[in-house]
Design a protein around this nucleic acid. Structure first.
Lengths: 157, 157
DNA sequence: TATGAAACCGTAGCCAG
DNA sequence: CTGGCTACGGTTTCATA
């Protein structure tokens, strides 16, 4: 992995702050907010995309609207060779698995999973997780209610 | 809380599938993909926004680019009255806290926190979490590496 | 709800200052 | 980076079905 220099300035930060809350804002509006010319904004946004500062533009969809009512976190103990993440990569391929984190402590992963209900979760664990080689054990935490769920980062001044 | 009917059809699902992967796609392109008129797409997208099916449009920003290199999950035991979530609401107000989930089991919350490094995490726990009334104990899990981190949902056909 | 025409406006590319 | 310019095409509205 190569060391990358991002070299962002205050104007970039302002653009990022506007875009992470409203990805569909147009260049003209950003330009007005920052009192700059639209062409300058366009260049900066393109550079932010090229440099992988902006990774993607997502629409955040209400899980309830498409009947994905159950959220769970599962700790997974695996016998992966350190740094290899064979199990992690397989976990990441499951569409219902939104996140896979390699965590400190017990040679394991923490994954975030969304399913319709508990029946669908049990099915997933049996039929999909159960088929992955190298999983030693799992511990499931069910979410009763979500108070906050955002991906916004704290952007410097 | 009132029961809401979303009543989405296959066309809505297709629109959602396109938009959750590229929030900046334009109506004309969606229209071409679905072989429909742009004006019809515009109406549907507006309705999806009104009905809170689409909650927000976010730019996903590379945490490394703005020096937010540490991700942690913290389990928090609290003496909240059930259903009241006083602690949960206070936790949600912290900008570094991206997620707050009320979890089954130990009268507690699971929160997701992003900070620059472990020093900043310790500061946050001491100065911000430490000031919240009602927190009994915390257990912190540090993420060494993230294999996958998405918010995309599995959208039906 | 969907379409298609028309007016409007933002985008993207250019270049001079 | 600004600002002026242009061509193009996307957005939005509305009458119509």
């Amino acid at each position: 992995m190569t060391k990358v220099e991002y070299n962002l300035d205050h104007v970039d930060y302002k653009i990022l702050r506007l875009m992470q809350d409203n990805a569909r804002i147009n260049n003209a509006d950003i330009a007005r907010e920052l009192s700059m010319a639209p062409s300058a904004i366009l260049e900066r946004v393109k550079k932010l995309e090229q440099k992988n500062v902006i990774l993607q533009y997502n629409a955040k969809i209400n899980p309830a609207a498409i009947d994905q009512k159950l959220l769970s976190f599962i700790f997974i103990k695996a016998n992966d060779i350190i740094g290899e993440q064979k199990v992690g990569i397989l976990l990441a391929e499951i569409p219902e698995v939104q996140e896979v984190h390699d965590i400190a402590g017990d040679d394991g992963y923490l994954i975030k999973v969304r399913t319709a209900d508990s029946t669908a979760l049990v099915d997933l664990m049996r039929n999909t997780l159960g088929k992955i080689e190298g999983i030693i054990s799992t511990r499931t935490t069910i979410v009763l209610q979500t108070v906050k769920e955002e991906q916004q980062l704290v952007i410097p001044e």
